[in-house]
Nucleic acid binder design. Structure first.
Length: 497
RNA sequence: GCCAAGGUGGCAGAGUCCGGCCUAACGCGUCUGCCUGCAGAGCAGAUCACCGCCGGUUCAAAUCCGGCCCUUGGCUCCA
């Protein structure tokens, strides 16, 4: 069974064949460290994480690089608000991004390169471009001449003469063609540029401008352009040609297009071989700011969403639409994701509990359960190999959930091997491949809470046996106030929270 | 204007590349039954789509071809 991926470069879904038989080189255009991460970023992260996980699942060793853009005028505009200098603002946001990534249960990537650490490589690449006639200096800035690169536009499928000008108005005079883009910008950051992005609470633009970093270069003091960094960093850490480049669809043009041009002009080699673009996350009522409810606005900040819904519900939500499709965030949609995740988690927990109190040497065999496990594994792999179809993969897992419930409901004696197989499938496919955290990690506080809840439930059972249902219901309601849901069953009360 | 992606049940959202297992998946919602002191969870089942419109190809089309209508995104910072 071969993996197929849709490639923006060719516009087709094609068999995936990495450069090396056993390794995949993967790059993701990361964030600019000027604003808190939101759900849209998280969606791209999670889907990239699942790509990473699936590649490993099918046997590849994945080398995963993801940059942070820590030089940018928007970062300077946050000085006085999120830090005292451009570097400090960047550092603070990087710290917060990394902690969000951990919270989302993303696999750790191999390198998180930053622009500030790669200025020499950037300069080297620009020099090579000038030398080869692809770029030119103008007033201490350097621009890429788009007319010199024949294939310019091949990623976004556009013609140079039909494009609009790139870059701000005041740059135009320095450029040969309006579509040319900056590789290096002379000087620091002007107060006017800062003013454009500045919030009320931030330091005055003049003050902030003082903290903007500049770097020495053959063309004088200046700062790297936005696009060149990804070319320089990916080449440094993955080589001239690498396998997979992931980015949000909004970056196809001009950012990714420019990356291709710079890199391929410099090296004469193909840049990324497979371009995967993630769909945009929209918010209900997005087009009209007024219409977007305040709660949605609130949850759109990743930090709040993580706290409110947790990583597994967010993951379920994100994978409910295939990675390259756009998705809409709404109260109903996140609610549904919560229900789906709970259904999956409950089935897993039920399988674990059932397997716990059954003799491992039992000869009981439930054909329905066992064939469903096999069908699930097969359907799951088929779905994932078909351009990472997470929605179908999840559906397969939910079919297994049904089979587990059926088995436990309908049998007095359980099929140990079947249950073990189901648990393994949940952990293997849901846990390893999709990144869910079944069971969660129980720390000391959680354990104490469990013991206290069980104590209350014991009392409640006594009341029930005595026929004091009012009292029993009150105890259940009180637990409910703390977010603990109690469910009675033949085997006694169960609870979750 | 240019480029791209879409229009599938009450909602959400797969399937469209490789036409027939699609009488359209998984789930949410609603309803019925089982279970249950009640509730929840679970199970069984039901409800709900002729897949934007028109035409064509084919034994056969949500899936291929042509035309039309509509929506969204990118082309300025953006995952």
């Amino acid at each position: 069974m071969t993996l197929r991926v849709s490639n923006t470069l060719t516009g087709e879904t094609e068999p995936f064949e990495p450069l090396n038989d056993d390794q995949v080189l993967l790059y993701l255009c990361g964030l600019t460290t000027s604003d808190p991460a939101h759900l849209g970023h998280a969606r791209t992260w999670v889907h990239t994480d699942i790509v990473h996980r699936w590649l490993e699942h099918v046997g590849y060793d994945v080398r995963h690089v993801e940059n942070f853009t820590d030089v940018n005028e928007k970062i300077v505009a946050r000085v006085g608000e999120d830090g005292d200098s451009e570097a400090e603002v960047a550092r603070n946001y990087i710290e917060s991004f990394l902690s969000h990534m951990r919270a989302l249960n993303l696999k750790r990537v191999d390198v998180y390169p930053r622009v500030t650490e790669h200025v020499p490589e950037i300069i080297e690449m620009i020099e090579a471009l000038i030398e080869q006639g692809y770029a030119y200096e103008s007033n201490g800035s350097v621009y890429f001449d788009v007319t010199t690169f024949d294939e310019y536009g091949k990623l976004s499928n556009q013609q140079v003469d039909e494009m609009e000008a790139q870059g701000p108005e005041d740059e135009r005079a320095e450029k040969r063609h309006p579509q040319d883009f900056a590789l290096w910008k002379a000087g620091g950051v002007g107060p006017e540029e800062i003013e454009e992005h500045r919030h009320e609470e931030a330091a005055p633009a003049e003050e902030a401008a003082e903290t903007a970093m500049t770097f020495d270069s053959p063309w004088g003091e200046g700062r790297p352009g936005w696009h060149i960094e990804c070319s320089a960093m990916s080449t440094t850490h993955l080589g001239e040609t690498f396998d997979v480049h992931v980015a949000g669809r909004d970056l196809v043009f001009p950012h990714n297009e420019n990356e291709v041009a710079q890199s391929e002009a410099t090296t004469g080699q193909q840049f990324a071989r497979y371009w995967l673009h993630t769909g945009m996350l929209r918010v209900e009522g997005d087009e009209d700011e007024e219409k977007m409810s305040s709660s949605l606005q609130n949850y759109f900040a990743l930090e709040n969403a993580l706290e409110e819904f947790g990583p597994d519900v967010l993951r379920t939500f994100f994978m409910s639409a295939v990675y390259d499709a756009d998705q809409t965030f709404s109260e109903d949609a996140i609610q549904e994701a919560g229900e789906r995740w709970e259904r999956l988690e409950r089935a897993y927990e039920r399988a674990v509990e059932a397997a716990d109190d059954v003799d491992a040497h039992t000869t009981v065999e439930d054909a329905d359960l066992r064939t469903t496990i096999e069908e699930t594994r097969e359907a799951f792999a088929t779905a994932m190999n078909d351009d990472f179809n997470t929605r179908e993969a999840l559906a397969a897992l939910l079919d297994l959930a049904s089979a587990v419930h059926r088995h436990v409901d309908d049998h007095d004696e359980y099929d140990y091997q079947g249950l073990a197989g189901a648990i393994e499938a949940f952990e293997d496919l849901g846990g390893d491949a999709l990144g869910f955290t079944f069971g969660g990690e129980a720390d000391g506080t959680v354990q104490l809470a469990d013991e206290l809840i069980e104590l209350v439930l014991e009392v409640r059972e006594e009341e029930r046996e005595a026929g004091n249902y009012d009292r029993a219901d009150e105890l259940r309601d009180r637990l409910g106030d703390f977010g603990v849901t109690v469910e009675d069953s033949d085997d006694g009360p169960a609870y979750r929270y």
